[in-house]
Amino acid sequence: MSEIISSDNLRKLAAEWIEQGVRVAAPQHAGGRVLYLPLKNSADLLLDAFIHPANSAKEFLFPKSETLYAYRVEGQDVKLVEAPGTETPQVLLGVRPCDAAAFPILDHIFNWDCADELYNRRRRNTTIVVLACSAHDANCFCTSVGLGPASERGADVLLVPLTNDTFEVRSVTEKGRSLFAGKTQTDNVAAMAAAGPEPRFAPDAVRKFSAANFEHPIWGEHALACVGCGACAHTCPTCHCFDIVDEHGERVRNWDSCQFSLFTLHASGHNPRPDQGSRQRQRILHKFSIYPDKFGEILCTGCGNCTRNCPAGLGVLPLLIAIEHEEHLPA
């Protein structure tokens, strides 16, 4: 027996949550594309006919700009004012498995040694309702990094599309179970997950190659077309690099990107990563070598957003395929 819910009832449920003051974020149409945005009207909720939103769901746990604390300078003295932390419950509704899988991965970095309470507090107050994929595009490569169209990693609930506008509701955690308790019907149908993309490369080969080839022409060659913007990092579910600045009496953390030329620039003017090639290398190394070495997990969920959003059509995938090819060349 399985639990099911119709899309109408799901929308009603979303409307109820909004009514109760829950912050609901979900894929919607905006700016000529699909984006994860706070849901204002449950009719705007998208449940099919999109591959992956142009942004990632990380911004609801790790916002693009966040006040760490405020301060007031009073003569020679300073008063610190703690950031007004919010305990508002939130539901990420209809996020793709590749977005949900990013959260357990990000938990490592925000909690090794010292815990980032700002992230953790949002994490605790968030329930993640994953919508399994029914299609993929040429940029998707979840199956290459150990995930898939119906992966439960990071999900509290997994919705798998059935025919006739209905979803099978698979509760993964207690949090998810209680969210949908009493809201579903039972049925004896079981949803079949769609087939994922064919695996495109082996992460181990990438790790081996990038660890052994810090200096290699492939980095510079692939970075030729890179314009040095942060579109890849900002739309990536796992990229988490940030900057800290003072603005208007607050200390604020903002998303940053390893592709910006200022990212590693020293005050002396020296820059350890002086060109786009070394910055692209850092992005690959961080995801496929540094992070796995430290935390045992690849810092990539194969969502394909970096390629989808790259103005120059790059992203990690073409480079990863090229590396795999390079790794298998006879020595």
């Binding site: 970095i109 980032d116 940030f242 800290i244 940053d256 390893c258 990212f263 590693t264 350890p272």
Partner: peptide, 12 residues
Amino acid sequence: NRMKCGVGKCGR
């Protein structure tokens, strides 16, 4: 090296 957080999070 350039740093922002000092606690192994900011990634630079």
